[in-house]
Design a protein around this nucleic acid. Structure first.
Lengths: 351, 351
DNA sequence: CTGAAAGCGCTTACAG
DNA sequence: CTGAAAGCGCTTACAG
């Protein structure tokens, strides 16, 4: 069983070998394998011949001939960022379910690598691309740069000429502010990443919500690393106007802020309340638990693949932008402020 | 600039178009692009024509003709496991540096999906495969199953007929035991995953080290999920023979144990010392910090790619097994036991 | 339903 | 160094 019939071919057993074995033409083998119109008798012969020979179709040949790569590209900043880890898993699952492959690339937010990988996508003739662009490159892009559909994820300015799946970042940030206000906090600061559009949108949401509550915004922008957040937070905590509560725009920054708070000897939430984004493992495990906005990564990945498929079927359809909501997971880091002015009713509901 | 010369071809601009534009043959374009022997004059003409036409080579055609896919497969259990996240990033970096692509597949430890993806690797005609097999499939595998080199990572029984890169799991587990003994603990239990060879090796290391110290082993095996670990640990903590310290074989189980300890109201390290594997973010951030063995994921990924390349260059070389050491990161979860019998000198050094 | 033939876009001996 | 020709392994009109 499973005897390896070494044929003359260097390449192993090909469709012609199977055809010979089954006593049919290569065309019939091809049809039988792709579910084409073949009589049951021949189909059975072909299947037997495939099993006997251990034949595996050559995908490079199939792609070249059929002009379908059956491949989608996924270009993100860094797979080690838990948001992208989850996203890539969701995209891969959707893709493999649809019988497609995924090519994953990490740009590290480097425009040069970004350009390199976009070029690669062209060379692979991907059927479509799911892309989380840097802010710089997003403005450069237009549809004519690509001969395949592109779906932006996570980062997409309103009005960009692409299908997109994003979180409602403004609403999510506002949700955190509302929650903090409801819990009695007033001097609420913000720390946002300055390189991605996501950080900017979350900042806008924060500023808007603070305004609606009649509170004064105080935010700072940092490079998207734990180290930068640590430095900025440490400096801030040393100032007289240190905030009572902090809204932080992603989990990397959150790590930096947490370490800075500990280094400064600040207790949560008594000395500092903390609220952020991404329901990473550690935000639950740390004491007293960090209040965060959880992003629906599975939905985001699935929706992105969905938009891609629909675009492939109907290239001329109007642009679509799927906006998903985050879920606020309340934990100990934003417990009710004990010195709260109980008379001050928040002007907006928590949700 | 960058004018899209739409040619008659449906497929976009091909090598023949470039050749016509440059006034040379397709063969010369091919040579110029692949760094073959071409005069400087013609090379410049070709480069200009490529720029002018926006030509991008079709990788499917190149692969079919050259019989090199320039692709390595990476088959792991789940990219969301932080060990595999780091590994995949390391492998991808090595691969892209060498001008190769990576195809990533998540098996979820499911033998059926494993078989499916191994078949896919054949169809892609990958140049090589980096593979973390389940225990079940590892015994099934032999070299003749593949027509490309395979390097096992993370999981590889001694004696398997493949190149492999693994952690010295026995030494690492022993290191944790030695450390706990040196800190004064004696009733040291173990919790190990039962599905992977890794868990078994770590258990062996634990048992051996306990024996050398003249201590009695007490370990339990569980399914590799946080839930299973939680259930088992919760039950154990309720028993009279509850351990003073616990060695846990991976970070998923560690999460379960930590939650169970908290639910049982056990303080670390006073009521329970904890030591595990994988220097995941949260092990540092949690109070009082968990002592763990850090795996050199970058080294593991790089070494695996290295073994693959060497095997491709020299198919007949003897099998190689690279065994890397973990680094013990000591944190508060294994602080000196205050009630330690100070007379009992550990029989082995901590390292 | 089936087969013979053409061709996807490249690379690579082969000959000069 | 250069070009004409063959061919990698498939799929797909085309004809029957």
């Amino acid at each position: 069983m499973e005897k390896k019939q070494k044929t003359i071919s260097v390449t192993g057993v090909g469709i012609k070998d199977v055809a010979r074995l089954a006593g049919v033409s290569p065309a019939t083998v091809s049809r039988a394998l792709s579910g084409g119109p073949v009589s049951e008798a021949l189909r059975a012969q072909v299947e037997a011949a495939v099993r006997a020979s251990g034949y595996r179709p050559n995908l490079a040949a199939r792609r070249l001939r059929s002009q379908h790569s059956g491949t989608v590209g996924l270009v993100v900043a860094d797979i080690r960022n838990p948001f992208f880890t989850g996203l890539s898993r969701a995209v891969e699952d959707s893709a493999y379910q649809a019988g497609m492959r995924v090519i994953l690339c990490n740009t590290d937010e480097d425009p040069q690598r970004e350009a390199l990988y976009l070029r690669l996508m062209q060379e692979e003739r991907v059927s479509g691309l799911i892309f989380a662009p840097t802010r710089a490159s997003m403005s450069t892009l237009d549809q004519s740069s690509f001969e395949f559909p592109v779906v932006l994820v996570d980062r997409a300015a309103t009005g960009v000429p692409f299908d997109a799946v994003v979180l409602d970042n403004r609403a999510a940030a506002a949700q955190l502010v509302n929650h903090l206000v409801a819990r009695g906090y007033r001097r609420i600061g913000g720390l946002f990443g300055k390189t991605s559009i996501t950080g900017a949108e979350r900042r806008d949401g924060y500023v808007g919500a603070m305004q609606r509550h009649g509170l004064e915004s105080a935010y700072r922008l940092v490079a998207p690393t734990a180290e930068a957040a640590y430095a900025e937070a440490a400096a801030w905590f040393a100032e007289a106007t240190r905030p009572q509560a902090l809204v932080v725009s992603n989990s990397l920054l959150l790590v930096g802020v947490l370490k800075a708070a500990r280094a400064a000897g600040l207790c949560m939430p008594a000395d500092l309340a903390l609220a952020g984004f991404d329901n990473d493992n550690w935000t639950e495990l740390v004491e007293p638990g960090i209040t965060v906005i959880e992003q629906p990564v599975d939905d985001i990945g699935r929706s992105a693949m969905g938009l891609l498929f629909e675009r492939l079927q109907e290239p001329q359809r109007p642009l679509r932008r799927v906006v998903l909501s985050g879920r606020c997971i309340v934990r100990g880091s934003t417990a009710v402020l004990e010195t709260a002015v109980t008379g001050a009713v928040p002007q907006e509901a928590e949700r």
